[in-house]
Computed example of a mutant assay.
Amino acid sequence: MIQLYFALALGTTECVLLVVMSYDRYAAVCKPLHYTVLMHPRLCQSLAVASWVSGFINSAPHSLFMFWVPLCGHYQADNFFCEVPALLKLSCIDTHVNELSLMVTSSIFVLVPLILILTSYGAIARAVLRMQSTTRLQKVFGTCGAHLMVVFLFFIPVLCIYLQPPTENSQEQGKFIALFYTVVTPSLNSLIYTLRNKDVRGAVSRLMGRG
């Protein structure tokens, strides 16, 4: 239950933080002269705190619901870690209420953030199309490219896990997707974000040159 609680909390927090980062990119590209006003430090701190609080609040009801679900005598979840869909498969009772609550909260904390992110990038795309300077275009792609890549790496597996209808033949696929977004995606995140740093790129180039 502790693992389930923190896995859900951190996943929800990342969904909300990615929305905050997309707003930051929107302000930087579409409102560059007002950026320091729109993204002042107090607002940034408030958005960060709100992201963490919403994540841990959203995780609480799912973890509490799982305490009341009786299991069918065996306690081995057929997955790499404890998450709601895998634990519901161990239940001896009708779990439609749990599945419905999971679907509703997943729609709120997955679909709504994804829609807001795509809306921000729609506005950014319109601003990019009006740009004439090649230097500014390169700067925009450098600012938004890493974040957009992380968005797709995170949201596509989450959508497949939490918003697809449960089927008997999807267990192996679900295990692979769960492994992907809990191991592969976080590993790639650090690589994607650090390679935006000029010093890191220089160090990697020197290392590859020596190799």
Score class of each variant (00 low, 15 high):
residue 121 Y to L: 02
residue 121 Y to F: 15
residue 174 G to S: 10
residue 185 T to H: 03
residue 166 P to E: 15
residue 142 G to E: 05
residue 187 S to L: 11
residue 177 I to L: 15
residue 165 P to D: 06
residue 101 S to M: 12
residue 178 A to G: 13
residue 134 T to M: 06
residue 186 P to V: 10
residue 85 P to Y: 13
residue 134 T to Q: 08
residue 181 Y to I: 03
residue 135 T to I: 06
residue 168 E to L: 13
residue 136 R to F: 03
residue 113 P to N: 03
residue 120 S to R: 00
residue 132 Q to L: 06
residue 181 Y to D: 00
residue 171 Q to L: 11
residue 119 T to V: 06
residue 110 V to G: 01
residue 151 V to T: 09
residue 139 K to F: 06
residue 174 G to T: 02
residue 167 T to L: 13
residue 111 L to Y: 04
residue 140 V to F: 06
residue 125 A to K: 05
residue 117 I to W: 03
residue 89 K to L: 08
residue 138 Q to S: 10
residue 163 L to A: 00
residue 177 I to Y: 09
residue 145 G to S: 04
residue 160 C to I: 07
residue 141 F to I: 01
residue 131 M to W: 07
residue 87 L to N: 14
residue 181 Y to R: 14
residue 93 I to Q: 11
residue 88 L to P: 10
residue 93 I to Y: 05
residue 118 L to A: 10
residue 116 L to A: 13
residue 125 A to H: 06
residue 131 M to V: 03
residue 144 C to D: 03
residue 144 C to F: 05
residue 179 L to V: 10
residue 96 H to C: 06
residue 150 V to Y: 09
residue 127 A to L: 02
residue 84 V to S: 09
residue 115 I to V: 12
residue 144 C to G: 02
residue 174 G to L: 10
residue 105 T to Q: 11
residue 91 S to Y: 11
residue 164 Q to Y: 12
